[in-house]
Design a protein around this nucleic acid. Sequence first.
DNA 1: CTGAAAGCGCTTACAG
DNA 2: CTGAAAGCGCTTACAG
Lengths: 334, 334
Amino acid sequence: MKSNITMKDIANKLGVSSVTVSKALSNKEGVSDELKTKIKKLAEDMGYRYNTAAKSIKDGLSYNIGVLIPERFTGINQSFYMTVYQHISLHLEQYGYFGILNILSSEEEESLSFPRLYNEKKVDGIIILGQVSKPYIETIQSMDLPKLFLDFYDEHSAIDSIVSDNFYGAYEITNYLIRNNHKKIAFVGNIYSTSSIQDRFLGYYKSLLEHGLTLDPQFILNDRDKRGTYIDIVLPKETPTAFVCNCDQVAYNLYDRLNTLGYRIPEDCSVVGFDNDIYATLTSPKLTTVAVDIEKMAQLALKTIMDKIDNPDHKNGRIQVQGKIIIRDSVRTL
Amino acid sequence: MKSNITMKDIANKLGVSSVTVSKALSNKEGVSDELKTKIKKLAEDMGYRYNTAAKSIKDGLSYNIGVLIPERFTGINQSFYMTVYQHISLHLEQYGYFGILNILSSEEEESLSFPRLYNEKKVDGIIILGQVSKPYIETIQSMDLPKLFLDFYDEHSAIDSIVSDNFYGAYEITNYLIRNNHKKIAFVGNIYSTSSIQDRFLGYYKSLLEHGLTLDPQFILNDRDKRGTYIDIVLPKETPTAFVCNCDQVAYNLYDRLNTLGYRIPEDCSVVGFDNDIYATLTSPKLTTVAVDIEKMAQLALKTIMDKIDNPDHKNGRIQVQGKIIIRDSVRTL
DNA sequence: CTGAAAGCGCTTACAG
DNA sequence: CTGAAAGCGCTTACAG
């Protein structure tokens, strides 16, 4: 099987023109059925493969979508974004597209450089998966390409985004704790860190408000520093009966902390998380949490970016995807 | 900033030819330094982006590497291959390449269809990450493209492969158990399932042989069915004092099983794993295991595939990357 | 139904 | 040092 068969090669063998071969292989009008069949058969036999690059250069599309993940979200213990990427990659199939992963290094983010993906016109659109710094958002905004934020958003930015419904998710799971007669409920997370955490915090707060519970500032527990590195969680003087953690991994960290201090879960303290990722089922007891609908987020993200490729003026604004509470064994009824 | 600036646009503005612009931007000989600087400056100002597709069509290279992962290795709880993919994606940077993930569906694997990645000439080489069926190996072999097996190999296939040193890794961790005075040591894994598991089993066996211990067939415990789905692990009549699990996830499953049956780890039973993935540190007690050098595997895989792109006759054969034992808390000295 | 011509954006080989 | 010509593999618009 010779390398690099082109339409011309097929055309020559059959004594027709490459235009005819092109039409036949892409099922266009204007070729007799007989010839069409003959061409397809020969193409198959010769091991012909379509050269996408040639098409790309014609219509200015790469048929690739870029997924940009900031380096700090790609640690060995943070499989969430890779799982999202996996779903995206799977659904790209139905659009005839492929996905290119570009991990954004911290240096690039700080020096505000464009991702290589962009400089080399490798993609027709780009999904930014995971919060980037404010200045870098401007860099992204200046890119001449359809773009979409996934799993975060920025108030000042006009860029479309798709997020899980952090606010109502946290609201509902806090309601669940209150229905189980908890009153001293702490929130675990750095509420200045990302918009997701902030929204989850506010959902938690809304639930407290609705139930006439006061928000004790001591019950907002920090889980990470400014750069996103996890820190030891410091418990307040009075131990809460329940903890709303901003994500499952932090719930996992909290389990450790509580165990070390001699508290049993859920006998002494109830804990809930958010994300329903691998940490939720690997802990003991298994974690009650809010499941993010990764499937739907990936699907919507692709639909949106494809719409924008077709029509650059297409606007979706911020779309929130509802999650659902998964009840496991980490909450006790008081 | 106008969309789609080309070299011609820059050339027109400066009253030079596009050939000169091409030379200037790629730092070729034959343009005065003065003009070169002027061209680069203008390109920057105009927001020019290089069109890789045009280059692709010239030299027949896509500057992409494909990573093919069989669907069954991409479950929510199987982050290992995604981690490997992540490392690959990171190292691709230094070659000026990008990575395209193609998850191979079970239907494609069964119907022996080429991955879409191949049919559309999207990549210059392909890394198959995770064992595929024997018939599908032949399909891969018939692909007219540099290819490499990562984390598995096939004896009949002439395709280069990079694997972690399963044999010696298992050998050494079994030695470690024996040094801790264990004598009744079981192996957990379906030894007909993949070459990795087989090799790990044989390393375990070598250790037994060397220490004059007999291999009791009842001490080979099955962990999965033919299709790779995990099954309940059935313990032998006489309980071993130690278990060599073929991977960390199975060790995790075994922990569950042993706990249910009332055995404590490591007081009653010692357990070791393989891979040092997320399961190793999320279990309690933390798992003593063999760390696979993902970093080095990814690096070698890329080096090899790039060598093959440069020279299709390049042959590496099977390369084994040494792992190392990570001692944690799941083994007790008898 | 079939095909010659032109063009997508770049590079290479050659001429001046 | 600079550029006209040809070509990579395909498609589109048009002519026959």
